[in-house]
């Protein structure tokens, strides 16, 4: 592999005999599409509802999507590595339930946090064992564990909610320099992961595994180990997101984050992550998370029917993969 693979920007230029002009490389990129859509979404949202354009409102409503967004960043890496995980939302629910349940039983917050994080990582490991150890396809495995984890959460919590102590509640209302804490966490995680994926050897290896796993293994990359770690990271991120949600809500129920897997996959797809692996960036998912939040919030403030919102989300998912596929197949030539 040439040095060009080191930066994802240059992946598209690979193999092509004459390098494309720089403006074209920048312009014909999925992230550019996401960015344009984001700007459009802002314009449309503020034109369909006069109440939308208010920076405090936009930031505070992003806290509703911040938890999924953080997990989506990690999911982006999993997809780039050629796998997928549909269970994180269920993982969030089960680890948050175990966390709250432990707190209720022992009144010890550190122990509860340990149990919650441990549970999240254990669920990630369970997925990893099935996918990497047993060589089962991740998409079906995680559909199974999605049902299983949420089902276990339902068994533990019934349909009752578990209350949390007052000091733990309200992370979304804590401001730091006028910005809600979950938004800051999201930005920090974005920067860290963008650095990890874009500028470290491990990041490069993740791209190579996703592009061609067999070739990557021949090149001496420990593909299985890296993928295992990615699933563990998924579990960890889900557990953290689960607890952030618990703090925002003040209580935990088994249906926490229900349906979140769709939003996470949507963020990754909208951000230009290639569903077959090997391509995608953290920046793309970052932009897509904002795009999704702006669109959803815009539709809500404009009082659109939830049905219309479902349609828009479903259409967006399809349009984004079609567009991403087209862009990649073009730049590949």
């Amino acid at each position: 592999m040439t040095d060009q693979t080191s930066t994802p920007t240059a992946v598209s230029a690979l193999d092509a005999a004459p390098p494309r002009p720089r403006w074209q490389v920048i312009l014909i990129r999925p992230e550019t599409m996401t960015f344009v859509l984001l700007v459009l979404a802002f314009i449309v949202s503020s034109s369909i509802s006069p109440y939308f354009l208010d920076i405090n409102y936009i930031l505070s409503s992003f806290t509703l999507y911040a938890e999924f967004s953080i997990v989506a960043l990690v999911l982006t890496m999993v997809i780039i590595a050629g796998e997928i995980d549909l269970s994180p939302a269920a993982n969030m629910a089960l680890s948050a339930c175990l966390f709250a349940w432990t707190y209720q039983a022992t009144q010890s917050m550190p122990l509860a946090i340990l149990v919650g994080l441990g549970a999240g990582i254990a669920m990630g490991a369970f997925n990893a064992v099935l996918v990497i150890g047993m060589q089962l396809p991740s998409i079906i495995v995680t559909i199974g564990t999605l049902t299983l984890y949420r089902g276990l959460a339902q068994i533990i919590a019934g349909d009752q909610s578990i209350r949390l102590p007052d000091y733990f509640i309200g992370i979304n209302n804590d401001l730091w320099l006028g910005v809600p804490v979950p938004v800051i966490i999201f930005v920090v995680v974005t920067i860290a992961l963008a650095f990890f994926l874009g500028a470290t050897i491990w990041g490069r290896q993740i791209y190579q595994i996703g592009t061609n796993e067999v070739a990557a293994q021949h090149a001496g990359i420990r593909a299985r180990r890296i993928k295992f770690m990615l699933f563990l990271a998924m579990g960890f991120a889900s557990a953290v997101a689960g607890m952030m949600t618990a703090s925002r809500l003040g209580s935990v129920r088994y249906d926490l984050g229900l349906g979140g897997e769709l939003q996470m996959v949507l963020m990754a797809m909208l951000g230009g992550t290639y569903i077959f692996g090997g391509r995608g960036t953290i920046l793309g998912t970052f932009l897509a998370a904002w795009l999704l939040s702006v669109i959803s919030t815009g539709m809500l403030t404009a009082q659109w029917l939830p049905a219309t919102q479902l349609c828009v989300l479903g259409l967006l998912l399809i349009i984004s993969i079609v567009a991403t596929n087209l862009i990649y197949s073009r730049t590949q030539r």
Binding site: L262, M269, A307, G314, L317, I318, I321, V322, N325
Partner: peptide, 18 residues
């Protein structure tokens, strides 16, 4: 579009419900 059916039908799952 030569897309993975799982993602397509995840999208239409929402679309048709809506």
């Amino acid at each position: 579009f030569r897309l993975p059916s799982i993602i397509v039908t995840l999208g239409t799952l929402n679309l048709y419900r809506g």
